[in-house]
Amino acid sequence: MSVAALIVAAGRGSRAGEGVPKQYRGLGGIPVLSRTLSAFLTHPGIGHTVVVIHPDDRSLYEAAVALLPAPSSALLPCVHGGDTRQDSVRNGLEALAGHDPELVLVHDAARPFAGPELIDRAVAAAGRLGAAVPGTPVTDTIKVIGSRSEVLSTPDRATLRAVQTPQAFRFPLLLDAHRRAAAAGLSAFTDDGALAEWAGSTVHVFDGDTGNIKLTHPVDFQEAEQRLKGDAMTYITRLGTGFDVHAFGDGDHVWLGGIKVPHDRGVLAHSDGDVILHALTDAILGALADGDIGTHFPPSDPQWRGASSDRFLAHAVGLVARRGGIVDHLDATLLCEKPRLGPHREAMRQRIAEISGLRLDQVSLKATTTEKLGFTGRSEGIAAQAAATIRLPEVSA
């Protein structure tokens, strides 16, 4: 039977931290999506594969595809997702409709460890049963609780399964269910099995794989990295530095570290003039040997006038991810007489960590004066210097 795979990669992954969406983060030096796609594109039973992405992620997607071992004619053009996961899956199904597959497997991009045996079981279950989802036994006791956290019941865990993806269906069955749900104005289904149940299908459970984990929280990435430890990938560490300065002008605030800080002056700048984020961006670009902030965001381009500098830092972090790399540490020093950094330091560290997708302990922020010397000492402007430590996969000569 002809089989298509639909990879859902349009989410923002907010529980994994801010910054690059989790499906594009490096895992063992390779973006998560690249690993997930490889599992389906190399499987002999899958005829076509389509990926549903967020419209803002096309460059990240293209970078992830470029890292696949070899181009594959089975990979169809990507499709833009919708407001909900259900909308995204429906968009992918509509794109596949022209290829008329008999079966479809719907899989989360954030599950990069789906092995060939699991995919085999999914294909077999869909062909035999029409609608089936992988499930693993529940080992913990489960309690159903009420509004006051009181226990209402204790289900028999022998009857419970933790459901995974790829979820497998006869293609016409799932496409019809999605179209009916959309026509009924329903868009909150987060699971295709549940949507098929709503549409009247009997959904079966086949054996899942406990190793088929979903990367949701930062600790999941740490455990996945540990799992991959010992693979042949070798990293090199790079250090980059950055510096930025802006003169003071009229205004009542300055942007520093992604935080709006009240001040009796503003800064003269093309963007929002955040010297800390600008210096950090240049530090990362320096570690990548990829130009500077002006190369990527030219001051002559009007689209960057007044732009929020968190976009610049997120872009630089994204470039590291596209190279299969990891940002290890960011360190910045603010140079000025005023405003004082102390009252805002932790909020700035938190914001930088959010933008970069890092833990708080990976972000350092300091401040110093220049003892009344120079333009900063005369309170004519504000400056910052920064350093970034990253790791990149070693490339053979």
Results as ranks from 00 to 15, higher is better:
I46V: 12
A125L: 06
L105F: 04
L37R: 04
L175C: 02
A383R: 12
E371D: 09
R378D: 07
R157G: 00
G286S: 14
L41V: 08
L60S: 12
A16H: 15
R349V: 14
P55S: 08
A66C: 09
W198Y: 12
L373C: 00
D108R: 15
F40D: 02
P343Q: 06
A199M: 08
R265E: 01
S364R: 14
L75T: 07
G324P: 09
T165V: 08
V79W: 04
L365D: 01
T49D: 01
A287F: 03
I142V: 15
L41K: 08
G286H: 11
L392W: 06
A199G: 06
A97Q: 14
L277T: 03
G240Q: 01
P31V: 02
M1N: 13
P134T: 07
V245R: 14
L360K: 07
V203K: 05
A126K: 06
V203W: 01
D244P: 00
A332W: 04
V245D: 00
V104D: 01
S308L: 11
D83A: 11
A74T: 10
A122M: 09
L228H: 06
G374Q: 09
L288G: 08
D207L: 14
G291R: 08
R15M: 08
T49A: 08
A74N: 11
V275P: 02
L174G: 07
Q86L: 05
I119D: 01
R227V: 00
G146T: 06
V261R: 09
D361Q: 13
D328C: 06
A182K: 15
A132R: 04
K260R: 15
T136Y: 05
H178Q: 12
G127H: 14
T368G: 01
A314F: 01
H99I: 00
L118N: 03
L175P: 03
A384G: 02
A168R: 08
A307Q: 15
T202V: 12
E380Y: 06
H80A: 10
W304K: 05
C336V: 14
F171I: 05
L334H: 04
E346A: 07
S73A: 13
R161Q: 13
R349T: 10
H48G: 03
